[in-house]
Design a protein around this nucleic acid. Structure first.
Lengths: 143, 143
DNA sequence: CTCTGTGCAAACACTTTGCAGCTAA
DNA sequence: TTAGCTGCAAAGTGTTTGCACAGAG
């Protein structure tokens, strides 16, 4: 383990204990691997990486652990929901709010979000095709 | 078909012809169903709905068609990528750019996006837990 | 008539679940 | 010691693919 990550690992262990989670060597390895990666890895990618040092680890453990981290706020999901793709046929400017409990996706419209500026540093490097402002939380019915 | 949607259907047929796509009754039904729904349906939900009137339609057709619409800009994906979930362990404020070609997700940070305001009308109804600004496009390597 | 689109079935990829044995606290 | 965790295997869910037939242009 790189020295530079010591602080983060200590913090991680504290967070686990506070949440009543046991600090297993698998969990440490998964957390370590995740924060060292800049590639926004999938569970499978994390699994392959760890398998080099802990050959007995299973993909399920990685899956379950990453989802646990997500719940605890130690990590989060940036892509894919594990659920089916969902489509929107409304091509007018609008934004989405998703309830993490009932999974409803609700449209709303706030004019200021329609034309958020692309930072010049980004526009210079990438060709932006779509800009999204997206909120997640608990809806009125689930509160 | 509701009268109110006639304009959209005509536009839809034109868009298809321009793109060299045949205007089949399945495609019309799928488009119709999608724009009538406010629920951001999955392919399966669209399929079940259409099956009532076109009992021979297959889920594959719905899947393929919705993805085609997505390519053409007649609809878009609001949730789920069809790919595996991907995680991020970086809990500092930052935003993501995703290349739709190579699927890379790249972090960037633009301070103004850290504190975008939640519209009061939204904050009143929902409990917001996460705010995201997200760009999609073509990265430097794929251009 | 031709060539794209469709329906079907099988393959595939990812995630979830149940359970017995293991291990951190 | 014991409650929670892990590894395994099987099942579940969603998506993709190859192919023969159907139907739009």
């Amino acid at each position: 383990m790189a020295q530079i990550d010591n602080d983060k690992m200590v913090m991680f262990e504290e967070r686990c204990r506070k949440a009543g989670l046991k600090v297993t060597h698998q969990r440490k390895a998964i957390y370590q691997t995740l924060i060292e990666s800049k590639l926004h890895p999938s569970a499978d990618q994390v699994y392959r990486q760890i398998k080099r040092s802990i050959s007995t680890i299973s993909l399920d453990t990685v899956n379950r652990t990453l989802q646990k981290f997500n719940e605890l706020g130690l990590a989060f999901t940036v892509e894919g929901s594990g659920e089916a793709r969902r489509y929107d046929g409304n091509m007018h400017d609008h934004q989405h709010f998703k309830c993490i409990k009932c999974r409803r996706i609700i449209d709303f419209h706030h004019g200021e979000f329609d034309d958020i500026d692309i930072p010049p540093a980004i526009a210079k490097i990438y060709k932006i095709l779509r800009k999204t402002v997206y909120f997640e939380g608990i809806c009125d019915k689930c509160k």
